[in-house]
């Protein structure tokens, strides 16, 4: 557990793309393009990941053990080029840690009297 804590801390803060990809995969397994669509929808078009950015992130996240490719059989009608990814338990832990880090930041900002609407 101690070990995990250290590994998680090493990865924080997460690059925004990484965090969004983790969020996109939290509720269900998705293939690459579906991740792009999900992130775009979730951010109301703010963040449009390019294919290169996405797969560079995916490659790194697979290596870091945050996500894994799903090897189970796919629906027959699916495009064979699609590869599905899921979040690993370690990935979930990292996403949580990042969320904690961000909310702590927000709490600190609030404590200083900062309000989002007074830009």
């Amino acid at each position: 557990m101690e070990n995990d804590r250290e590994l998680i801390d090493d990865l924080l803060p997460l690059p925004p793309a990484t965090f969004h990809i983790l969020l996109a995969l939290l509720d269900e397994e998705r293939h690459g393009y579906a991740i792009i669509q999900d992130v775009e929808a979730r951010t109301q078009g703010e963040l449009r990941l390019s294919a290169g950015t996405l797969y560079r992130s995916i490659a790194r996240m697979v290596e870091q053990g945050l996500i894994a490719e799903v090897t189970r059989r796919r629906p027959a009608a699916d495009d064979p080029r699609r590869r599905y990814y899921r979040v690993t338990p370690f990935g979930t832990a990292v996403a949580r840690a990042e969320m904690r880090r961000l909310s702590e930041l927000v709490r600190l900002a609030r404590a200083c009297g900062l309000k989002p609407e007074t830009v």
């Binding site: 690459g32 792009i36 294919a51």
Partner: peptide, 17 residues
Amino acid sequence: SFWAEYREDLCYAFAER
């Protein structure tokens, strides 16, 4: 190595986009 692993996925995602 990246190319070998992801070229098809990249093409697919790019084509969709």
